[in-house]
Nucleic acid binder design. Structure first.
Lengths: 143, 143
DNA sequence: ACCAGATGGTCAGAGTGTCTTACCATCGCC
DNA sequence: GGCGATGGTAAGACACTCTGACCATCTGGT
């Protein structure tokens, strides 16, 4: 009964969460967004983000991020505006349809977290979040 | 300062661990294994596993699993033997080179876990593992 | 004010991973 | 013995990602 490595233990609930969000979004009419697109979309800041930043945070090249943002833009989830602070750059922003999908996914995440809390108990769920937030300091290059 | 959703919090350290293991394996001479291959390889049981089981546990179709196992076999990480219990099936087993790569990755995982323990403290690291193991019961369709 | 290097972004091409559909061989059970 | 379920493969299409090359703009030093 050897314990699994922590990497895999982290992956299993992550994948379960992702799967729930995707099936839920598809049921809510957001059926044209892919996991890869979502991993970029999820990181758009409220004020808009540069492509390069999205790429770095999502862990892909800027070409890949550009490819995915193109699709998100065509599907109406995001738009792009010139960055007033830098003539080379454009800001990717969440568009109207994107905002609606964020609302939908927020509800699904809350539902899944509620199920996890019911299983783990309130205390351990809080603890899990605290520990992971702490761990983020040394595993997320983006603070 | 809204808290991140737990899914993303799980993903960040998972990705960090995966990245560390891959760069470490590449440095140790196992430079031809891809993340997708590893996600299948990691789930091979000590007695050998059927392709269908590997596919289900890795969350891909059996065709995809077969494609990845073909590559692992060509690279010497696994071999396939007929399943004595079922004439249709073959068992995928860890081969000699695969066993060496397992040893290498075990060392890397131990190193990363040691760093995490140093950051979180012994107690919270143990707690993290316990909570994740508990959470596995409702997020891993495979027990 | 200028230039050189750094940075934001795009284009083109290739390779990898994944799925759907279709199919064959064997198994287990009535 | 036959029939539905299961283990596995084949072929084709699509999605994702990378490398290399390139252009436009910015920034800092002189």
């Amino acid at each position: 009964m050897e314990p699994l490595n922590v990497g895999l233990l982290l992956f299993l609930p992550y994948r379960a969460m992702e799967a729930r969000v995707f099936t839920g979004l598809a049921e809510a009419g957001f059926d044209d967004v892919t996991p890869a697109q979502a991993r970029v979309f999820q990181r758009i800041s409220p004020h808009g983000s540069r492509l390069t930043d999205l790429a770095a945070q999502a862990g892909v090249t800027k070409q890949t991020a550009g490819f995915l943002v193109d699709q998100l833009e065509r599907a109406g989830y995001v738009d792009r505006v010139p960055d007033p602070a830098d003539g080379r750059a454009r800001l990717v922003r969440v568009a109207e349809r994107g905002a609606r999908s964020v609302e939908a996914s927020r509800a699904i995440v809350a539902q899944v977290e509620a199920e996890w809390t019911a299983h783990l108990g309130e205390h351990r769920m809080v603890e899990l979040r605290e520990i992971l937030t702490d761990l983020r300091e040394i595993t997320d290059p983006w603070r």
